[in-house]
Nucleic acid binder design. Structure first.
Lengths: 200, 200
DNA sequence: TTCGACACGTGAGCC
DNA sequence: TGGCTCACGTGTCGA
């Protein structure tokens, strides 16, 4: 505000200059430049050396008519441009981080919020991953137990099957010889059982 | 961007200004304070109001040492101080993010690297979590299958057991004289009941 | 008007 | 020595 006013106070000479050299009167963006120029003017006034270098870079980058943003002054050697490039790269990282954070379209631009979200999401994902890992552990243990039980059952089943087959053979064998004499009457009860189980 | 370009566009007049006022004898003490003072001088020249506040601040903080940091000028209302506070807060976020990123002690200070790491770790955790989730799914399916198989085995085992026991009874029964022929199955039922109730 | 968020150019300091 | 990262103060813009 104050600066702006003061800029206006001192901007007249620049306006004059612009009216001379600038064939693009539709350029309304010289506020900063003017301010910067003023600062630089003073800096140069007091530091001729730095002013010289600044002069150089201004000359070398030239940018006679370059209203369009981009890397018009990507010319190396210019510290300000390099710094701006660095800032742009940083902002790209921010955007990238933001897009990774939430694939939802609208990309935030608030750096503070992006960092905060990143911290939050990072912690959430960490705990989530950890929880899944624990669940996995338990599931695998359960699988292990189930497999063991299954094996046990299978063995028992095989054993029973073997017993059954053996007994089937035994039954066949005992059914034929007429000379066979049972040792004790109680042993005949099963026959009754069989009758009951397979009445038909 | 535009400002910069336009700034360059108009930079020559500054050079001219320099050529006017420059000639400055090579003073070798152009340290920051002087620079700041110069800038402030210009600011004041252009903005008497803000310059007053700024002066105050400078007096109160003194600022003999440029990067003397800390909150010496925590004076509210000062834009520069607020901006610095904002920067500090942002840096805190960066540190926090970094510590979340790698609990390993050494905290990085490279913002670009921190953001890059954040993006990387975020993606890694995402895929990791996703993988765990898939594995969980498969493990649960496997458990389901195993349980089904186990149940099947148990049923088969029970059936075999029943068969076996039946056959055991049968064997005992067949041990009786081959000439024995039961007159009627129903007559033997009580005996079966007795057997069932007192199997031993 | 004021305040927050950014971009800017620049000096400091570190390899 | 130059190129970098950062801190700084400031201008701008939108709410």
């Amino acid at each position: 505000m104050d600066q702006l006013d003061s800029f206006r106070d001192n901007s007249w000479d620049l306006i004059d200059i612009n009216s001379f050299i600038d064939e693009a009167p539709s350029d309304f963006f010289w506020n900063d430049q003017i301010q910067n120029q003023n600062q630089r003017a003073v800096a140069e006034l007091e530091a001729p050396l730095s002013s010289a270098t600044f002069q150089e870079e201004c000359i070398e980058t030239e940018c006679p008519r370059k209203r369009g943003r981009n890397e018009s002054c990507s010319k190396q050697g210019n510290k300000a441009c390099r710094e701006r490039l660095r800032r742009e790269k940083l902002n790209e990282r921010f955007s990238e981080l933001c897009s990774v954070l939430e694939p939802g379209r609208p990309v935030k631009t608030d750096k503070m919020a992006i960092l905060g979200d990143a911290i939050r999401v990072l912690n959430e994902l960490k705990t989530e991953s950890e929880e899944y890992k624990e669940i996995n552990q338990k599931l695998m243990e359960e699988i292990k137990t189930l497999k063991a039980e299954k094996n046990e059952l299978r063995e028992e089943k095989l054993a029973l099957k073997a017993d059954k087959e053996r007994m089937e053979q035994e039954l066949k064998a005992t059914a034929t010889p007429a000379s066979f004499i049972p040792p004790h009457p109680a042993a005949y009860q099963p026959a009754v059982n069989k009758m009951a189980v397979f009445p038909n």
